[in-house]
Design a protein around this nucleic acid. Structure first.
Lengths: 215, 215
DNA sequence: TTAAAAATACCGGGAACCCGGTATGGTCAA
DNA sequence: TTGACCATACCGGGTTCCCGGTATTTTTAA
């Protein structure tokens, strides 16, 4: 078979900039064809009726509305043979585990280079599972038991310090005074903590921190 | 016995002004000896190894770091025969009640006169317990109210329901929708929960609920 | 020696919280 | 039948949070 059919690709990503990069990247490859590119899961589902079936779906894991992980089962139901690659900014154990359990075939960090992303798509089409080295390492640890000997936190030192204080009920201003830094800085750290832990308010960050042993 | 040994006093108080007054007051009494005076619980614990055992410990109920109430059990373990008197600015029944349950022998309002303070110390050395009528009433109810012991939650059913939702990161409005009651009602319940658990914000209520197994 | 990550700092606006009140109907035990 | 407790509901005002930005310096890693 010297001549082979192009592989159909779907993209579901709400960040406009990254979405454009992906589109360009895919269109530059002869063997790929971008048949559908949308910015929400709801729109992706609309494609079930109108678009050519995908061989590969690239989907942001952190979409507004329905969680990207939740959507996986719907894709699988509609296109059992499609490979699903999740895209994410941060690599954390919870998400990886959930996504893989839900049926994702691969997992990519958004900061990967274009070459790495293309390679990942080709890998998954050949039955491989594109997992970033960092993620692979974490998965190994998960599978080889001992699961939580060290529980690597995705948070930086400073963020961990601030998280402890948040859990102890400190306000931004109190933390500012305690650490001798501007309240604006504390706010910034707090926002980053929220993003990394996938929460959107104090209560949830405290609950997650305690339950996951982050404090 | 006309001649008797002096009573050893420890002071744990972080307000410098009040701490000085206390020190002066105690040193003026012949039968008292101030053997250790510090401004934090951590420092107080250091005295376990180096200072003469106290007959009376005067401790601020509202210290930063470990709660003064929490510290009581440590003092009792170290010095079972020492009398512990809690110092408080406000006549906070709940706090004082908690302190007494934890093993405190009495409490004093900081605005008390020097004479009253000295009298309270002497009272407690003679087995008396300076308690306000309001506190006495609560204690009576608790004793006659049976059970209470164990880890019975002080929260009502409705409060427990709401607490669970708070821990899960729900806002007042979300809870209102979930339970089909007015947000004002949810607010009222929340305030009551705060009061009962002695916390003053979401973070603390979540942390306490999880750590105390209330959810 | 560079590029990336981390830590720092600032702003504005809308949302949510926190508190101290007041008030009313229902239930249940003394 | 009379307190008490509970669940419900409402208000105003000050505080704090949450988010989406932008931007500089310091530290770390390739």
């Amino acid at each position: 078979m010297t001549e082979q059919k192009k592989h159909n690709i779907w993209v579901v990503e709400d960040d406009h900039t990254f979405k454009s990069s992906l589109e360009d990247l895919i269109e530059m490859e002869d063997q790929f064809e971008l048949v559908y590119s949308v910015n929400s899961i709801e729109k992706a589902f609309e494609g079930f009726a109108t678009k050519r079936a995908p061989d590969v779906i690239l989907e942001d894991i952190e979409l507004p509305g329905m969680s990207g992980i939740e959507a996986i089962s719907y894709y699988k139901k509609q296109y059992p043979r499609a490979a699903i690659i999740m895209l994410t900014i941060f690599d954390d154990d919870d998400r990886v585990f959930e996504a893989i359990k839900a049926g994702a075939d691969g997992y990519l960090l958004k900061r990967s280079s274009g070459e790495e992303i293309i390679k990942a798509i080709k890998d998954v089409l050949n039955g491989g599972a594109p997992i970033s080295p960092a993620i692979a390492k974490k998965m190994m640890r998960m599978l080889t038991g001992a699961s939580s000997d060290k529980k690597e936190s995705p948070l930086t030192k400073r963020e961990q310090t601030i998280l402890k204080l948040l859990v102890d009920g400190y306000t931004i201003d109190m933390i500012s005074g305690e650490l001798h830094i501007s309240p604006f800085t504390v706010d910034t750290h707090t926002k980053n903590i929220y993003r990394k832990l996938h929460v959107h308010n104090r209560s949830s960050v405290v609950a997650k921190a305690i339950r996951d042993g982050l404090v």
